[in-house]
Design a protein around this nucleic acid. Structure first.
Length: 270
DNA sequence: ATGGCAGTACTATACTGA
């Protein structure tokens, strides 16, 4: 099973890129972030005409996540709230985090998929930075509840954090930069400590592999990127991972997203 | 240190992203 994560920066602007890439990549499930469209206006027909099943959790202008799958998915969960609700621990504070549409989850082939669009955080010390850190606190509780299902979990998405210096083109002085601050990294490591490992680093150790390049300053041409889109797997799936790659081709097309897809391949028979 | 580019909502310019 091949699972991809891709922040498309508006699915309506990136429709042909996404449809074309689905065909050439042959992925089974594509996890989209920043769809920037309410569910009623999501361009469903082109995906359905191509034979895909679609599950969306969107909002106007900002955020928005979706799952595109060759096979139907089951146990679809939109947002954090339903998981807390089922556990009898839903609060208004948790519910408020679902005003921003950043989480969608479903089950494929017995695997619990979790597709995330982590808040950007704006700048260190800002209100949005605080929101990002508190959002991770909710994610942590959410994952603990999901783990109780007993299924393996494949969590992916735009994490808006480069976990290590080797994930940034020029890491010097980046401790004061959003996506690289020690507190953000520490917070993400706390999530991974729940029992997740980075699929990409199972196969590739060297620096210089990125999933996002700033539109400005010709960052892609100069390969000044960041690796901030990740596949994090529970140990059983990490063992079954046989590849994890970044496909830079979509980033080099005209009018690209600023992110490019990251693909993990699992051999579930292994 | 700042701004640079892009998408959306709206219709000029503000907000957000990372």
């Amino acid at each position: 099973m091949k699972i991809a994560t891709w922040n498309v920066n508006s699915i309506r602007s990136r429709l042909t890129h996404a449809l074309d890439w689905l065909e050439v990549s042959g992925v089974d499930v594509l996890c989209l972030q920043e769809t920037k469209v309410v569910d009623a206006d999501f361009p469903r027909s082109p995906f359905e005409a191509a034979g895909y099943h679609l599950y969306t959790f969107g909002q106007k202008s900002y955020n928005g996540v979706a799952l595109v799958s060759r096979q139907p998915l089951t146990q679809v969960i939109c947002g954090f709230s339903p998981v807390f609700e089922a556990a009898g621990s839903l609060t208004e504070a948790i519910q408020a985090f679902d005003e921003q549409k950043r989480v969608i989850s479903a089950v494929a082939a017995g695997v619990r998929l979790v597709n995330l669009y982590v808040p950007n955080g704006s700048s260190i010390g800002s209100e949005k930075y605080d929101y990002k850190l508190r959002w991770f606190g909710v994610l942590r509780q959410y994952l603990e509840l999901l783990k109780a299902e007993g299924r393996p979990i494949a969590m992916c998405g735009d994490f808006n954090i480069a976990l290590e210096d080797r994930d940034i083109h020029n890491p010097e002085g980046k401790e004061a930069h959003i996506m690289a601050s020690p507190l953000e990294r520490e917070t993400l490591r706390g999530i991974l400590d729940l029992g997740f490992a980075d699929a990409f680093r199972k196969f590739t150790q060297e620096a210089g592999h990125y999933s996002w390049w700033d539109y400005r300053t010709a960052a892609f041409r100069r390969d000044m990127g960041w690796r901030i889109d990740h596949h994090y797997l529970t140990p059983d799936l990490y063992e079954q991972a046989i590849a994890c790659t970044i496909d830079k081709a979509p980033r080099s097309l005209p009018q690209p997203s600023d992110h490019t897809p990251v693909i993990v391949e699992l051999d579930l028979e292994r």
